[in-house]
């Protein structure tokens, strides 16, 4: 089935809803959705830069999704990059590994402050992984 995401209505923030056949695909899709929010319709003239490896830990799998997004938000802000090339290698119960590469846009369409734990969910339904996370924008 691959992976998919959509943005659901939330009065003040952005609710991201994800589905994928594997956890690795779902986490990569979450990263791509984050890049989509950050870049919007802005043209990107640079190609993806140097790849970096990331390792993220959390209390549980749902929190791991929020931590993964918060890691990308932190790196985006401090390195002035948006990560568009994401390869999630492994997602365990409490940790994950990925390799990412980013572009350096002139500006951001939307600044994302953080991934929240509000209404956070991650579950397997009928063999497919589904998740929901609210981002503070």
């Amino acid at each position: 089935m691959g992976a998919d995401h959509r943005f659901e209505e939330h009065t003040g923030e952005v609710r991201l809803v994800l589905s994928a056949s594997t956890l690795e695909e779902l986490f990569a899709e979450a990263g791509r959705a984050l890049a989509e929010i950050m870049l919007g319709e802005l043209p990107v003239t640079t190609s993806a830069g140097r790849e970096q490896r990331l390792s993220v830990q959390a209390r549980d799998r749902a929190a791991l999704l929020a931590e993964w997004l918060n890691e990308l938000i932190f790196l985006s802000e401090t390195s002035k990059q948006v990560f568009t090339r994401l390869h999630v290698e492994r997602v365990g119960p409490n940790e994950m590994q990925a390799a990412v590469a980013g572009v350096s846009p002139d500006g951001l369409r939307t600044q994302v402050k953080a991934a929240t734990l509000h209404g956070l969910s991650l579950e397997n339904r009928g063999g497919a992984w589904q998740a929901s996370v609210v981002l503070d924008v």
């Binding site: 939330h10 003040g12 923030e13 929240t116 734990l117 509000h118 209404g119 609210v134």
Partner: peptide, 9 residues
């Protein structure tokens, strides 16, 4: 007031 995350805004 409107919907926030955790607390309402």
């Amino acid at each position: 007031m409107h919907e926030g995350y955790g607390f309402p805004v």
